[in-house]
Design a protein around this nucleic acid. Sequence first.
RNA 1: GGGCCUGUAGCUCAGCUAGGUAGAGCAUCUGACUUUUAAUCAGGUGGUCAAGGGUUCGAAUCCCUUCAGGCCCGCCA
Length: 517
Amino acid sequence: MITMHWADVIAKEVADTCDHPLIATGISPTGIIHVGSLREAITGESVRSAVEGLGKDVRLIYLIDSFDPLRKRYDFLPPEYEQYVGMPISRIPCPCGKHKNYAHHFVQPFLDAVDSLGVKCEIIWTHELYEEGKFAEAIDMTFKKRQQIIQILHEVSGKEANPDYAPYNPVCEKCGRFTHPIFDTYEFPYVEYQCTCGHHGKADVRKGDGKLTWRCEWPAKWMIFGTSAEPFGKDHAAAGGSYDTGKRVAAEIYGIKPPMPIPYEFVQLKGVGQMHKSLGCSVTGLDAINMTPPEVLNYLFLRVNPSKAIDYDSGLGILDMADEYDRMERLYFAGEHTEAEDNSVRAYEIAQHNHVPKQLPLQIPYRHLVNVAQMAPDFDCVLQVLDRTEDMSKATDEDMKRLERRVNCVRYWLNGFAPDMVKFMVYPTIPPGLELTMNDKIFFKELVNRMNDCNWDSKTISNIISETGKASPLGAKGAFKMIYSVLIGKTAGPRLGPFLASMDKLFVINRFVQAAS
RNA sequence: GGGCCUGUAGCUCAGCUAGGUAGAGCAUCUGACUUUUAAUCAGGUGGUCAAGGGUUCGAAUCCCUUCAGGCCCGCCA
C-alpha cells in the first residue's frame, strides 16, 4: 500500500489544477506572536516545496496585515497607547522605538523566525498594497455590489442583514482612525465620510486612505494574487466563518475561483514546568522559537496532519523531538526504513524544503548537548569539550552553524523550562558544606592513584570508578554518589564515564585530590 | 444555538486518498561486557483500533448512530 504524506497529497492536487500555483499565507501582527502562526508559515512553505518538487513553478507569498486597526489597548501596551486604538498599526509608533512602526515591532521577531526556518516567501505588506492602489478595483466592486455582499453575508452566516454594512472603511485624515463611509457620495475613486471626531473628508480608494473589511479583503487578496491554496486556522474555517463567506464573495462579487483551503488546528502550549506555573508564567511563541532548533520545529509541524492539534511540550518532550528528528535524518541517509516510518522520514525530507543536505550532517546527541552546555560557558568551550569525545575534524561550516544554533536553544531551554532533574553546575571547588567521612577520603585517594596514569576515555573511567567503588566500603552505588557530590553538588547526574571524559583530566583529578585531603 | 477536528500500546503518533494477518519511537522489563545512574547493542512484554450498528468474502480504514475530549464561530455583521 502506498501512503502519501499530507503535503504531497495537497501538492498533487494543487499541481493538477493550477498552471502557475501560488500559495498564500499571512499574519496579523496586532499583538504578541503565537506558535500557531509558525504552523501556518511552515504549512504553506511545505506545500510550496512539495509542489516545486513536482516540477511546477510555484510562489509562496507572506502577507502581513499591517493595515489592520489596533482593536484595543492590550495589557502589554503602555497606557498612552489608548489613543491609538482604531488606527492602522502601520501608522502607530513602535513601542520600543527601534522599529519603523507598531506592525514592524511585532512582526520582526517572527520574520526572523520564519527566515531561520528556511521558509522561502515573498514578504508583502498590506498597507503598501493599499498605498499602491492594488485594492482599488476590488473596492470599486464592493461599492457597486454592496447589496449583494450584504445578502451573501446574511445567507452564509445566518445573521440578520445589516443595511449599513460597509465593505470599505476610510481612515479619517484628521484623527487617523478608521471610520464609516457615506455610500451615496461614492464615485470612483472617491468616497466621503463623516468621522466621529467631527471631521468630514474624502478618501481616495486608490491610496492608503482606507481599507476593506476582513471578509471582503481576504477574497480581494485572492483576486490580486491569483491564490491557488492557502492555509488558515480553524477559526476562519468554521461554518459561516470568513472562508465560507469569502468563497462566495470571490465567486459572485469578484468573479474568481477561491483557493483550495488548508485548514489547520491550533497549537497548544503544554507541559510547562511546575516552576513556571507557580510563577504564573507560560510559554510564548517566541519562547518556542528560541528553545526549539528550527529544523526540529519544522519537523514537529510536518510529522502530523494539519488537522491534528499539537500540544507543544516545553519539558522533556523537546528532547525526544530533537532525537526523533536526528533519527529520521539517519534513516533518510541510510535509505532504509520500515513502512511505519515512511511518513516521518518524508516529513524530515519535506522539512528541508528541497535543500536536503548532500550527506549525513554531524550529529551530536541532543541530550548530550544538554550536558555539555552546562559544562561550558560559551560556544568555544563547548567545542573544546566535544573535541575530547567526538571526532569534530569532519565538521563542515553548516554543521558548526547547526551545532551553535542547537546549543543556543538548549541554553534557552535550560534557563527557563528544563526540569531540575537535568540541570547541574560543575562547581569551581568542592561544593561548600559538603562533609566527607574517612571512608570517602580513602576512596578518593585510591581513585586518584588509579586515575593518574590511566587513559582518559569513557570506558576506562567507568571501569576504575566501578572497581574502586566496589573495593571500598562505599560500594559502587555510594561511589557514584560521592563523585557527583564533589563535582556538581547533587547525588545523581549524567553518566559518569562520558561526563568525566568530556572534562579536563587534570581538573577532575585535582578535585579528587582535594576531596581526599 | 451552529460547526470543525480528534479518539489506535503507559506516552507521542503512523496507518484512513487502493478495504486484505494491527505498526514505530519513547517509557518499561530482560540479557550483552565483572562498568545499576540522564550518550551503547540485542531481544521481550504490551492494543476489543472509544462504543454500537450497517455495507462487504473481508473494515482501524467506507456509511449511520452514540459517547468522550479539544477548539472555533455567534465579539471585525
